[in-house]
Amino acid sequence: MKIDPFDHLVSQIYEAAQCPTHWPQVFELLRRQVSLDGWNLFRANRADDTALPVFFSIGGDAIRAGAQQSYLDYYFSVDPRTAFVRDGAPGQLFDCNRTFDQRYVSRNEFYQDFLIPEGLRYTLGSLACQTQQHDYVIGLLRGPDRGLFTGEDQTLVQRLLPHIQRSLRLMDSIQAQTQHASTAEQALATTPMAVIGIDRTGRLQHCNARAEKMLRDGVPVRMRHGRLVAADLAQRSALVAAIEQCARSSQPTSLLLLQDTPKLQRFSVTLMPTLGESILTGVSLPHSLLCLIAPLDRRRVATARQLIALFGLSPAEARLARAIAMGDTLESHAHAMGTKLTTVKTQFRSVLTKTGCDRQSSLVRLIAAIPVAREVDPIR
């Protein structure tokens, strides 16, 4: 069955919503129906006029390799077409020949120094889509030899614009959700807690990397028949009861899990109902619970590099501050570092001064309040 070229083009427009790298193929197909020497599709930030545009497609026989960089470096800021199009209504078609006459073009810096030397002259453009944060602008270009866009050309492009608008709006939403999920994933990667999403029967929905490791190790929880259970048989009924209570009351519930392998380990478990979107996926999951599990006998504190950046500590002072926050004494730290106790005491006084603390307990509370950032190359 032969597919109508217009219908095929529309189908490719919607494919590009999920895969933005597909937009060049869309314009190649469009070029077969509307003769073009060049084209572009870019996104501009509505809140920041100084931000450079993001191009999803720029191409054509008349577009040389360095044209995009020249445009970004300077000519975007003086392009009269872009300002005119972005001031218009979404979906409104802009014909530069009707807006900028030959007298204007002959005196305009953008046309004379950039567009015409690039072998281009005529533009058919539109504010194809406008979202809360972005303007999406499309430009179809012809050189002087190919001539003006005809009424038939404009009718075809006008038919395509509603499809392009819907595709761009969908693409914008997908990218926003992806960014939301990526940000949440990075935030969860820094937490010392295992974060597990379950439904109200205990079935796993999602979890962060720390929770994945915890489930693999089977301490203090594991999966059994697709449901979250305590690893210790004696505590399974307590966890099941806590899940049921949280699901029934929609109030947070806490319990303590113990694991005796090989030494006694304690874990706090907090269950709470989710509100709105999942922090792990950005997707609304009604009737879900979050299970937060944290080891009570292992303390994660801010890295030495964080303490250096925050308070201007020296590497030796940062190591001392971390050791104190983890429960070491000045004497034990001096012994571990092979340093005189008098030197460590001097470092400690400097740490208190730089952090604005008046005693050791204040320093411990201060460091405990700092979110921990992972390091690839920690300062030792």
Rank of each mutant, 00 (worst) to 15 (best):
R107I: 14
Y104C: 11
R98W: 14
R107H: 14
F76M: 02
F114I: 11
R81K: 11
G119Q: 00
D113E: 06
D73N: 13
T123K: 06
R64P: 12
F110Q: 08
A89L: 14
D95V: 12
G88L: 06
A65K: 12
D61F: 13
P80R: 05
L115E: 01
G125T: 01
A67L: 08
A128T: 13
Y104H: 12
A62N: 02
L120K: 00
F76K: 01
T82P: 03
D101R: 08
C129D: 04
G119L: 02
R64M: 14
T99K: 11
Q102N: 15
T123H: 05
R107T: 11
S77W: 08
A62E: 02
D101W: 05
D113M: 06
F100G: 01
Y111S: 09
R86P: 11
T82M: 10
G66W: 11
Q102T: 15
I116V: 13
T82R: 01
D101Y: 08
Q92K: 11
G119P: 00
D95R: 05
D79R: 00
G119I: 02
Q68S: 07
R86E: 13
F114C: 09
D87G: 15
F94H: 04
L72K: 03
F94R: 05
V105T: 13
T82Y: 04
I63R: 14
D87I: 15
A67S: 05
D101A: 07
Y104V: 10
F84C: 08
F84S: 08
S106T: 13
I63A: 13
Y111C: 10
S70Y: 12
Q69E: 04
T99W: 12
A67V: 08
R103F: 14
E109S: 09
R86S: 13
D73W: 12
L127I: 05
R103G: 13
L115H: 04
S77T: 08
Q112F: 08
D95I: 11
E109M: 12
P90Q: 10
R64L: 15
T82Q: 05
Y122H: 06
T82I: 10
D113S: 06
